[in-house]
Design a protein around this nucleic acid. Structure first.
Lengths: 106, 106
DNA sequence: TCATAATATATCATTTTGTGATATAAGTGT
DNA sequence: ACACTTATATCACAAAATGATATATTATGA
């Protein structure tokens, strides 16, 4: 994919989880639970992406956080980026649905 | 992400395009057009992924193809995989929508 | 007809992303 | 005290994606 600061699957999932304040471990658990284990992001991927999202200022570390529980949440910019990305993904899902619907099998 | 044979964004987009028989160049053009340039897959990514999809037998090279226009299409297995992946993505989009909906901004 | 643009496939070397394994430590229940 | 869960963190490696580039064919139009 081209298009500058590309949002990957994992980034999208983590940002989605951060529409509510959550710490890293909770993000991992949430994604795994809500997708019934279909998607699982391990700690290595998690913290790599968290770092990047912080640098881009799409998420921020909440004040109340201590070193034991670091709570993150989307910034306003992050919300805009996520909303935008969601629309693109929605479109792609629609295209897949249409494509599959018109196929000879079923 | 964990979960064995993970389907990446690019793989998903290309498979979506191949719900109808298409050659490589047409896949690239289609994705770029339908997303209004938001998503663009260059030739390097394209052929890397095409190779992988062929190896997995999720797509096949149509008989009528010559070296100039290689037409691909989803196999039955490929259709199942895409349908499945579509459902996961649909779920994630729904979660993002719900998350954003409940946020303080708007 | 000659150049130019568009169509089409292909690969290399590099960068970017993602991940398994592993470490560390604090809290919880028994 | 012990095991288990919660929680953050990093390293070294693997996987994936991409920019640049090459090659050939087929329009387009001046």
């Amino acid at each position: 994919m081209k298009s500058e600061g590309q949002i990957t699957d994992s980034m999208f999932y983590i940002m989605t989880a951060l529409t509510r304040p959550r710490h890293g471990y909770a993000i991992m658990s949430l994604i795994e639970e809500t997708t019934q284990g279909r998607i699982a992001i391990g700690p290595a991927s998690m913290y790599t992406i968290i770092k990047k999202l912080l640098k881009q200022e799409w998420i921020y570390l909440q004040d109340g956080s201590d070193s034991r529980r670091k709570v993150y949440e989307l910034t306003n910019q992050g919300k805009v980026v996520l909303k935008d990305e969601m629309n693109v993904r929605k479109l792609m899902v629609q295209l897949a649905e249409e494509g599959l619907g018109g196929m000879d099998n079923e």
